[in-house]
Nucleic acid binder design. Structure first.
Length: 717
DNA sequence: GTAGGGTTAG
């Protein structure tokens, strides 16, 4: 046996080897017969090979100690041992040994880099990659085919381009399709589809992976046409699509909401034998859901034998997007029962389902599940929770979730600002907007819309104007849309700056009915008949039968006593068969939603509701509430007169909730599909004082927080 | 001995 230290043949000290479990089978003859370095190297290699086969970490460490002692770390032995550590999944030891190696093989570099990339440790992968050239090792096709992913994951465009340059210099960009497709993927992830296309054109032997990377890139850029074109090219070149390709191109069809092409591709997938592949099935059910065919989507799902986490999530997302919130929730429970865990995608969708129904209680249940899976600090799940609590009027809860987020990004900021905005906390929203600047987070269009909404709901006219102007003049990167303009028109119109509001609308290139209707509604507040008539004409030019416009105008005529015009409006509405959307309120009591429409006494607890209302009426009158005269003077019998006092749906919903719940510490939440009426608004203020509880009312426009006889909107809504 | 593409969200 030899050692590397003295290069002189001598006997191997047997006692070192006794503890080797894998060596026990080697004959002692082999041990003693090593008389050259090559032989010793061969001997160690075979030992390490045994370790790899047995995946024995203990043996690997013993060999490690031994070869250190006898100085055999060089040659191929150290590299081989690194491989053994990898195969035993002992990465820390592999890295430690890697750092000790006097000479590292390219394969060892590559293994190390690819390990880091596959375990989302891109930074470490790039650090190693940048060490290669200075240490005299040139990256090869294996290095490049994995390292580009690290650049795209970290968004390092310049460094990625530099690495691309080196791969060109080394002649690997066009000659190796692995390198080529990794490059295409990187540029696609950077959103640089032109560069992706340029690389793909140069690659010599294009294959299905390269084309799929291009298709996915176009999908992510929202360019369905581009994706379909690539798919066509691929088929024309005789390259067959596989499971991954079908998964991607079906998403294209869904994004384009193109059912006919979608069905065509579905047929092709069946013909190609990928009908039962889970990935393409998942995309298939997503495609049908995007095209609005929920039944077909469910049918695809039901045929899948082993749906995975993503499949379940895709189904739930599809249901939520098609307003099937209840079904989405029940599918979610089914998913949990099948002992699959949800991820942040799943949970944010389910939370969205809760906020669309304004089901705060179910939402809270989902919140506990979010915490159970440790996702309450996750940006996406967090943003969904903030959004839900905001929509349910729980600003406090939204704020508390916001506070627990580990990393605040634009989306979670937007959710919180929007939450403040809809609940009338204008200054809080502005404060957060300022903090965003301090944190150097770049605001986007949604941020600005939320901030403007906050100003509008709190009557912060100057602040709103200032922000709007500064974005328009200095922030060319944010595109101001019709929604931003509509918000400003509302803000200016409400405070009586009608001329400015009208001027603003005229600056919008693609005007819609909403803009003019907003101005019209401002005209109604300020009794501006002349401008209102102009607005009506403009609105009806764009959407001739718009019912909102008709209703607003007839209300405006009524409020200015112009009865002949009211009659004319009403008859033209009748002719056009326009009907008012019936007012509706609902309340979530013990996770059950109870709905009430105006003047509807069909609820099984009507008697109790009426009693509660009579009881409340007596008390609020003592505090100074005066019922709106229009509701008491109608010619009804006694019973109906009593009921007509309480005809509005929000009063019924509130009374029911008060009767059902007695805990004074919890607030009551009622919801209305239209805007809350002036009389009810005043009545609820008094009720909040009488019952000593917080009452939150969400109407079509915003939230009202009633407490101690006051409302958070300051009577401005 | 080591390598590239997919499906779910705000």
């Amino acid at each position: 046996m030899v050692t590397a230290h003295d290069n002189v043949p001598r006997l191997c000290p047997l006692f070192h080897l006794k503890s080797f479990t894998c060596i026990a089978q080697l004959s002692s003859e082999t041990l003693f017969n090593c008389t050259s370095l090559a032989e010793a190297s061969q001997f160690y290699s075979s030992l390490i090979q045994r370790c790899i086969e047995k995946k024995s970490f203990t043996d690997a460490t013993v060999i490690h100690t031994h070869i250190l002692k006898f100085g055999f770390l060089h040659l191929n032995i150290g590299n081989k041992l690194t491989d053994a550590y990898f195969k035993c999944s002992c990465i820390v030891d592999a890295r430690k040994l890697f750092d000790e190696l006097p000479n590292r093989f390219i394969v060892t570099w590559n293994s190390m880099i690819s390990y880091y990339i596959n375990h989302r440790r891109s930074k470490e992968a790039i650090l190693l990659y940048t060490r290669m050239v200075p240490e005299g090792v040139l990256p090869d096709e294996f290095t490049f085919s994995s390292v580009f992913k690290a650049f795209s994951e970290l968004g390092l465009v310049n460094q990625g381009q530099q690495a691309h340059g080196l791969s060109v210099v080394l002649g690997l960009e066009v000659s190796n399709v692995f390198v080529g497709s990794a490059l295409v993927d990187m540029y696609a992830k950077f959103g640089k589809m032109k560069d992706a296309r340029l690389v793909s054109n140069r690659v010599m032997d294009k294959d299905v992976v390269l084309f799929t990377a291009l298709i996915v890139g176009y999908n992510q850029q929202g360019d369905g046409g581009g994706a379909l074109e690539v798919f066509g090219n691929m088929i024309n070149q005789g390259i067959k699509a596989n499971e991954y390709t079908f998964a991607s191109i079906l998403i294209t069809c869904g994004n384009l909401e193109d059912l006919s092409v979608g069905k065509l591709v579905h047929g092709l997938a069946i013909k190609s034998g990928f009908e039962s592949a889970v990935a393409s099935q998942t995309s298939l059910l997503t495609m049908y859901a995007r095209c609005g065919l929920i039944i077909d989507s469910l049918n695809v799902f039901n045929k899948i034998l082993h749906p995975n986490q993503v499949t379940w999530t895709s189904l739930i997302v599809g249901l939520v997007q098609n307003d099937k919130a209840e079904l989405a929730l029940s599918k979610f429970r089914e998913m949990i029962r099948s002992s699959l865990s949800p991820n942040s995608f799943t949970l944010s969708s389910v939370i969205q389902a809760c906020s669309s129904l304004a089901m705060l209680e179910s939402g809270k249940q989902i919140h506990t599940i979010v915490m159970k899976f440790g996702l309450d600090t996750d940006g996406y799940a967090g943003a969904a929770l903030i959004d839900m609590y905001g929509k349910c009027g729980s600003t406090e809860m939204a704020r508390s979730v916001f506070g627990t987020l580990i990393q605040v990004n634009v989306v979670s900021m937007n959710s919180m600002i929007y939450g403040y905005a809809q609940n009338g906390f204008g200054y809080e929203a502005l404060k957060l907007f300022k903090k965003m600047k301090d944190l150097e987070l770049e605001p986007n269009g949604v941020t600005i819309l939320s901030v403007l909404l906050a100003c509008k709901n709190a009557g912060l006219v100057d602040e709103g104007c200032q922000i709007f102007d500064s974005i328009r003049n200095n922030y060319k990167s944010i595109e101001l849309t019709r929604d931003h303009y509509a918000c400003m028109v509302d803000l200016l119109g409400r405070c009586g700056r009608l001329e400015e509001a009208e001027m603003l609308i005229k600056q919008v290139s693609n005007q819609d009915v909403v803009l003019w209707r907003t101005l019209l509604s401002a005209c109604k507040i300020h009794g501006e008949v002349e401008m209102a008539e102009r607005a009506v004409n403009e609105a009806l030019d764009i959407t001739p039968g718009d019912e909102g416009t008709h209703i607003l105008m007839s209300n405006l005529y009524a409020s200015t006593g112009n009865w002949s015009q009211v009659i004319e409006m009403k008859s033209s509405m009748r002719e056009m068969k326009l009907k008012k959307n019936p007012a509706m309120s609902w309340v979530d009591v013990n996770t059950e939603v109870h709905t009430f429409t105006a003047g509807d006494w069909s609820h099984p607890r009507s008697r109790e509701i009426l009693e509660t209302l009579e009881n409340l009426m007596e008390k609020v009158k003592k505090l100074g509430y005066v019922p709106d005269a229009r509701f008491v003077l109608q010619d009804f019998d006694e019973e109906n007169k009593k009921r007509s006092l309480y005809c509005h749906s929000e009063k019924l919903a509130l009374a029911f909730a008060l009767w059902m719940t007695s805990d004074k510490t919890t607030s009551i939440r009622i919801f209305k599909n239209l805007r809350v009426c002036g009389d009810c608004h005043s009545w609820i203020k008094f009720v909040s004082k009488v019952v000593g509880r917080e009452i939150v009312a969400r109407d079509a426009k915003r939230f009202h927080h009633f407490k101690e006889g006051c409302c958070s909107c300051g009577d401005y809504w």
